[in-house]
Simulated assay, not measured.
Amino acid sequence: MHKNANHISSRSGSAAGNSSRILIAAGGTGGHVYPAIAIADALDRECEDAQILFVGTKNHMEWEAVPRAGHDITSIWISGFHRRLTVKNLLFPVKLATSLVQSLRIISSFKPDVVISCGGYAAGPVGWVAARKGIPLVIQEQNSFPGVTNRLLGKHASLIFTAFRDAGGFFPQDKIILAGNPTRKSLTSVDTDQAYEAFGLTPDIPTLLILGGSGGARSINEAMAKHLPTLHDEMQLQIIWQCGERYYDRLREDIHPENYDHLLLTDFLHDMPEAYAVADLVISRAGALSCSELALTGKPSILVPSPNVAGDHQTKNAKSMVSEGAAELIADDQLEETLAGLVGRLITDRQQLKKMQKAALKLARPEASETIATGILELIQKKKHP
């Protein structure tokens, strides 16, 4: 088990027999992991004696992100099934069987009152075993087009929390609660002056924030590399650019960031609240979590939906933001051609940015985490006191 020492010591005397024991399965990307952490944080606030354990994989971001947030995590051996024939697919049946045995051991040992699936590879085996053992299963679905894992688990769930109305068509209607996506409270509790100081930036110069998701986005990186001289030198913007670990070394070789005084190139941003606080405009993929965070922080954005996601759900997410006036949309294959022009038009129009900020804030659901936590705790109480 991967543990946070402070978290464990603070809970050392609270494992009472009537405490709520909650198992959360999520992993793979920030879109699954950070909503799960937000739910766990809300459960901690709502129930002081809650015992929370995450299940994920050791080779994805949850293995570091969850302990950093103050929660415990254990692992199972599982990965996704590739649509094309690969050597990795030959191992999939072995991994699946192993992960089911591991999930059974974890559940038998931890004895959860409820299991929460936030999607990702790890959620499938854990959720399936929970259903077979008669343990209440709760699903939190972030996207308008649900992922495979949550779609398969839906028929076994006691409660299903969705963020988009469109997702309701994939689940039993009597189990659905439209709650929005849970987001981190820390995103809106930032001292802006300290945030500028942390990044070494000034509020006197417009700041552009580039987010390609936790894994980075090749098309956004390529477009940024092409237009960097225009954005940095000609438009004189401050730029925070999260490019993803897999692209970082190559980009450093290609663009020589040391030649740009107001550029911060990083593989991953751990201080996201501060990054949002200083940003005047954000370029981002249109994953559900990204859209929810942009709404919560009221940040005007240029959304670039990934063309490589199930059901084209990122385009649907982006269009919902655009229709409310909170964002502009650029298709992935048009990015290199149109990026600099759109950034230049928006970031110099303070009035338009204010309109987009107000529109984004209207879309926010800051109470989503509490709504979900309350529903989960009520479900536990019904189980304990039928």
Results as ranks from 00 to 15, higher is better:
378 E>L: 12
312 D>T: 03
350 R>T: 14
318 A>S: 05
319 K>M: 09
361 L>A: 12
367 E>N: 07
326 A>V: 06
323 S>N: 10
331 A>R: 03
307 P>H: 00
350 R>E: 11
362 K>E: 14
331 A>Y: 02
323 S>F: 02
350 R>A: 10
357 Q>M: 04
359 A>F: 08
362 K>L: 07
326 A>C: 02
316 K>P: 02
332 D>C: 07
319 K>A: 03
319 K>C: 00
347 I>V: 14
325 G>Q: 05
360 A>V: 10
379 L>P: 08
376 I>G: 04
322 V>M: 06
367 E>A: 08
352 Q>P: 01
336 E>P: 02
369 S>P: 13
374 T>W: 13
304 V>E: 00
368 A>C: 08
377 L>A: 07
314 Q>D: 03
375 G>D: 14
307 P>V: 04
372 I>C: 12
321 M>R: 10
348 T>G: 06
335 L>F: 08
366 P>D: 14
343 V>Y: 06
372 I>F: 11
365 R>Y: 11
318 A>W: 01
369 S>C: 10
315 T>H: 06
384 K>I: 10
372 I>P: 09
342 L>V: 12
353 L>E: 12
305 P>Q: 03
313 H>Q: 02
337 E>R: 05
320 S>V: 03
357 Q>R: 06
356 M>L: 09
367 E>V: 01
375 G>S: 12
314 Q>Y: 02
328 E>V: 08
354 K>S: 15
356 M>H: 09
